[in-house]
């Protein structure tokens, strides 16, 4: 997968539009900057950590990277189905202050099953640097979206963008599963 395609896959896996809809908000209904940034950094750390540990992790589980790609694709397809059916995230209770970065930003909004498996799959195949670049790029888009004030029109755009990203995740999942099947 090229760097551009991998970035698109991460944009879709993180579903930055859907995630934005669930991020705790502050003044003028913009995302709380510290909470969003901390959540993003935490998620990026987990993704990079999983990518870095993908080799030993898969070896310990006795799974070849090629076969795991099928699993990642399968998970992405199921997650895409959920997004297409429910493009808005559920309202989660928001704890006070910095803890909101952990819950709900890092988990469950960013670190869903599809992101975790894609992190392992891309770490094993494309490597840690490419994973960092792609995931970092996708999360930078989320941070930019954090400045978007929540109003009826932007909300509708975000919901439609969530659906589009869900469709892209579906395609990325199918692509990954086929790659996993075709590889040696």
């Amino acid at each position: 997968m090229t760097a551009a395609l991998l970035t698109v896959a991460y944009l879709a896996a993180f579903n930055v539009a859907r995630t934005r809809l669930g991020v705790p908000e502050g003044e003028a209904r913009r995302a709380r900057p510290f909470v969003l940034l901390a959540g993003v950094l935490l998620a990026l750390g987990v993704v990079v950590g999983l990518a870095a540990a993908s080799g030993p992790l898969l070896r310990s589980l006795q799974i070849t990277p090629e076969t795991f790609r099928i699993a990642a694709g399968f998970t992405a397809v199921v997650a895409a189905g959920v997004v297409l059916a429910v493009p808005r995230p559920a309202d989660e209770p928001v704890p006070r202050r910095w803890r909101a970065a952990l819950w709900p930003v890092a988990f469950p909004l960013l670190l869903g099953p599809e992101v975790l498996v894609v992190a392992v799959a891309s770490g094993a195949r494309e490597g840690v640097a490419a994973t960092l670049g792609a995931a970092g790029g996708a999360l930078a888009v989320l941070i930019a979206l954090g400045f978007l004030p929540r109003r009826p029109l932007p909300d509708r755009v975000l919901v439609w963008a969530s659906r589009v990203l869900g469709a892209l995740l579906l395609l990325a999942g199918i692509w990954m599963a086929i790659e996993g099947i075709r590889e040696v």
């Binding site: 589980l61 006795q62 799974i63 070849t64 076969t67 795991f68 099928i70 699993a71 399968f74 998970t75 498996v117």
Partner: peptide
């Protein structure tokens, strides 16, 4: 996933 898609490849 473990049971249905990626059982251990022994």
């Amino acid at each position: 996933l473990r049971l249905a898609v990626v059982p251990a490849e022994v």
